[in-house]
């Protein structure tokens, strides 16, 4: 299993990495501060291990860009740095997914990495592909969230084509489940839990919903919610039954 672990992890991060890679390819890096921003945010994860690393790579560039903004009146470094942070967010979440130690953290980081990549992809492919535009997109999105601006939100205006990501997502889902079931192991061998049977059940239940997504996409979300709610209700009722 140890040899297969890098493959499983690679497949698991594939969709988020793919979408984010597409965003990074067409993004226009007009300022080196964008790279500095990306590097800074990634270094936050390593600040525990590298002493002073956090201060040097996070606070110093931030302080310098603010200094230029205030003293020199040049907002470009500040905005570029912020854009770098935004671009690095999915990367940070992908790293969190790889280093997650609990099932909840793994699921949470998988979902947030995927959705943040989607949001970024939507923004970049909708024309917000320079540091300044991406920053404005974020500010306007937050303003809309607060409710004081015209209608724009963080929901991606543009999505990658379903055909592009369907196969990687299916593979990554199975890889995620394998990772969930191998994230912690007791020191000694115990009989495996019934996860293969559970995976088959989940896939079998997913087939009609997949067909629904192809035939009638607008009905997919409600069908998914109903099916998942029923399975959760069944779990609650079944596990409350008195053990003989």
């Amino acid at each position: 299993m140890n040899a297969a672990r890098p493959v499983v992890v690679a497949v698991m991060i594939l969709p988020a990495a793919l979408i984010h890679g597409l965003s990074l390819i067409i993004f226009q890096y007009t300022s080196p501060f964008v790279f500095l921003g990306i590097f800074s945010l990634i270094m936050i994860l390593l600040s525990d291990r590298i002493k002073w690393g956090g201060i040097l790579t996070v606070y110093l560039p931030a302080a310098y860009s603010i200094y230029i903004l205030v003293v020199g009146g040049n907002p470009v470094p500040f905005i570029s740095l912020a854009s770098g942070y935004i671009l690095a967010m999915p990367l940070v979440l992908i790293i969190s997914m790889i280093t997650a130690r609990t099932p909840a953290a793994l699921i949470g980081s998988y979902f947030t990495a995927y959705t943040s990549s989607l949001i970024l992809y939507g923004a970049v492919y909708d024309g917000y592909n320079s540091p300044e535009k991406l920053f404005i997109y974020l500010v306007r999105g937050l303003a809309a969230y607060i409710g004081s601006a015209e209608s724009i939100s963080l929901i991606p205006p543009e999505n990658p084509s379903t055909a592009l990501l369907a196969t990687p997502t299916a593979a990554s889902t199975i890889a995620l489940i394998i990772r969930l079931m191998t994230i912690t192991k007791p020191d000694r061998q115990v009989p495996e839990g019934p996860w293969i049977a559970a995976l088959i059940q989940a896939l079998v239940l997913g087939i009609p919903l997949g067909i629904t997504a192809l035939i009638n996409p607008s009905f997919t979300a409600i069908a998914v919610l109903i099916t998942a709610s029923l399975s959760l209700a069944f779990l609650a009722l079944y596990s409350r039954r008195r053990v003989e």
């Binding site: 889902t173 489940i177 996860w195």
Partner: peptide
């Protein structure tokens, strides 16, 4: 986004079944 929707569905139902 259909692939993400089906992925989250599969994970949730998998955990429930498990």
């Amino acid at each position: 986004y259909p692939p993400l929707l089906l992925a989250t569905f599969t994970i949730a139902v998998f955990l429930t079944s498990y």
